[in-house]
């Protein structure tokens, strides 16, 4: 009895989690793939095996620019998030000596993550709006004569809001890699006469790359599927694949939305695998 129970026990224990992912992740994504070959007749979808949905994506210049625009957001947010997150994580890991302060400052950085994304986006209105603080300041300094409309409802606002929401996803993994670096390595390098920039270039930076990779995966996957920030911060001006999918669902064009989702998923996974190839991530878990 006990002999059968033991191995079976593991499967019973993971069963609920597995079923959740089967029902709400695997089956839904398989359904997306199937439906992407279905037909849409203007008001409903019918089972079929057509490639029209994909053909229309690959032959339309509108789609091309939508995809390019999405990549643009991914690239800009990724570069800026890295540029902000690395110094922040480095400061926390190497310049804060007491563990207590390290924990406190780390918690200070993570608390906004536990609040609503929608509220955090709204909170830019008093700054960027037509009568917002930024415009008031510029008017006051006589740098502009009329309020600049462009701050809110622009690519600038979209990127700013995304950085506000997602930079933390880069900070945490980099911090995690940095604190794990054996301090003896650094002492040894300094004792052997390395300059501090050499220590950074030869030891710290290479050892922090897995953290950079994990953070990059988060940023890429979060921004690739973005539609809320694009919708809210650009006022519907900018486009992204996620937003296009969202609009197609709004007009019930499920097969077309599904085809876009499949392509989005494939591109995202390719990016993730490309990042995974550069470093061995399993060491971090």
């Amino acid at each position: 009895m006990l002999k059968i129970w033991k191995p079976l026990q593991n499967y019973l224990l993971v069963a609920p989690q597995f079923l959740v992912f089967l029902l709400f992740l695997v089956f839904p994504i398989l359904t997306i793939v199937v439906v992407s070959f279905w037909e849409f007749n203007g008001y409903a979808m019918t089972p079929a095996l057509i490639f029209e949905n994909y053909r229309s994506i690959f032959t339309s210049s509108v789609y091309l620019s939508t995809y390019l625009n999405t990549f643009k957001f991914v690239a800009i947010v990724w570069i800026l998030a890295f540029a902000i997150a690395y110094p922040v994580a480095y400061f926390l890991a190497f310049h804060i000596q007491s563990l207590k302060w390290q924990v406190i400052l780390f918690v200070v950085c993570t608390i906004p993550f536990f609040t609503s994304n929608v509220i955090r986006m709204i909170s830019w209105i008093p700054f960027l709006g037509r009568e917002g603080l930024l415009n008031q300041l510029l008017m006051h300094l006589n740098l502009v004569q009329e309020p600049v409309e462009l701050f809110l409802f622009s690519d600038f606002a979209v990127v700013l809001a995304m950085l506000h929401l997602y930079t933390l996803f880069m900070v945490v993994p980099i911090f995690n890699s940095l604190v794990r670096i054996d301090r003896n390595l650094i002492t040894a390098a300094l004792d052997s006469g390395a300059a501090s920039w050499q220590v950074f270039k030869e030891i710290i930076f290479p050892l922090s790359l897995p953290g950079v990779a994990i953070g990059s995966i988060f940023i890429v996957t979060l921004v690739m599927g973005e539609f809320t920030t694009v919708r809210l911060m650009s006022g519907g001006q900018a486009s992204s694949v996620g937003y296009a999918i969202r609009n197609q669902i709004g007009s019930l064009q499920y097969p077309q939305a599904a085809a876009n989702a499949v392509i989005l998923l494939i591109i995202t996974l390719m990016m993730v695998f490309a990042i995974l190839r550069t470093v061995d991530i399993r060491k971090e878990l």
Binding site: Q17, F18, F21, F24, L25, V26, F27, P28, I29, T31, I32, V35, I217, F218, T221, L222, M224, G225, F227, G242, I245, R246, I249, Y254, A257, A258, A261, L264, L265, T268, V272
Partner: peptide, 20 residues
């Protein structure tokens, strides 16, 4: 599978469950 659930773009989860 668990990691995939974390990193799959959220619109896919929403759309997928909706269509499913």
């Amino acid at each position: 599978l668990t990691i995939t659930s974390l990193i799959v773009p959220s619109i896919l989860v929403s759309l997928g469950i909706g269509i499913f």
